[in-house]
Computed example of a mutant assay.
Amino acid sequence: MDKVLFLYSTREGQTKKILKHIAEQLDNCECDFSDIHDMPDIDFSCYEKVLVGASIRYGHLHKKLYQFISQNYQALKNTKAAFVCVNLTARKENEGKDTPEGSVYIRTFLKKSQWQPPLIGVFAGALRYPRYRLFDKFMIQFIMKITGGETDISKEVEYTNWDKVKLFSDDFKKM
């Protein structure tokens, strides 16, 4: 049985939820999950594949993601490893914002990171107004107003395209 490691950097949990959905698509695999923010010490040789998932907040990936990549660059480079970016901009599928080529966040990631994953997924996340702190609630509402998104702060909206996640899962299996 293959072992697969899922590493995540998430704010409200949607990135981890997406990774768990991908794990459910894998046949005959033992899946381990670890929060990058805990800066885990990992023996990558125990795993057949690795999937790193991270979310965007205020236009940026968390700095701990870059620290983790820097500390584990050789292991990631020498392992079948892929990357997933979760953000609200990816809800604009008709504009191509849900593709590695159309995502400004992926372009920035690839410039800032020495790790250049061979497989990258970009998925829309979830808007969880009731879970946000007051400052975040109003800042995200402002951003959503500018970008034509949901502004009702009583709502939670999941924009994730689960069919697209399934297609990525199929590509990840083939790695």
Rank of each mutant, 00 (worst) to 15 (best):
K155P: 03
K16L: 13
T10H: 09
T79S: 15
I56P: 04
F109I: 12
L119W: 01
R91Q: 11
I106C: 08
R133F: 10
K166L: 10
A126S: 09
G148H: 00
S9Y: 00
S45L: 14
F123T: 00
L76P: 04
D32K: 15
D136H: 07
E93T: 09
Y8D: 05
N94P: 10
K92V: 12
K166A: 12
F68H: 09
V104Q: 12
I22E: 07
I56W: 00
H60N: 15
N161G: 05
T160W: 02
L65M: 15
R131V: 14
Y132H: 14
Y58G: 03
Y159I: 00
S9H: 03
I69N: 11
Y132A: 09
Q67G: 13
L5P: 08
R91N: 08
A23Q: 05
E158I: 08
D38I: 08
K166F: 15
L119Q: 00
A124V: 05
E95N: 10
F44C: 00
S9G: 04
D27N: 13
Y159A: 01
M1K: 02
A54G: 07
G121I: 12
F83K: 00
L51N: 01
T15S: 05
K20L: 04
E95K: 15
D32R: 14
I106T: 09
A90F: 05
K63W: 04
K112M: 09
I42W: 11
Q114T: 15
L19Q: 03
K145M: 08
M39P: 04
S103I: 07
F142H: 14
L167K: 15
H21R: 01
I146K: 13
Y159F: 04
E48Q: 08
E150K: 04
M1E: 03
C31I: 07
F138D: 07
E156Q: 15
F109K: 05
W162G: 02
V157Y: 00
T10W: 09
K111G: 07
L88R: 07
N87I: 00
E95F: 14
H62Q: 10
P130H: 02
G148M: 02
D41H: 14
R107A: 11
F68Y: 13
C31R: 06
I22K: 03
A81M: 03
I22M: 05
W115E: 11
T99I: 02
I143W: 06
F6Y: 07
I36H: 01
L88M: 08
D32N: 15
W115G: 12
K77W: 08
C31T: 14
I153K: 04
N161P: 03
Y105E: 03
F44M: 05
D35V: 06
T10Q: 07
S9V: 01
K16M: 07
V157W: 03
H21D: 04
K155V: 10
W115F: 13
V52Y: 04
C31H: 08
G102L: 07
E24Q: 11
G148W: 01
Y58N: 06
D136V: 11
L26A: 01
K164S: 11
D43A: 10
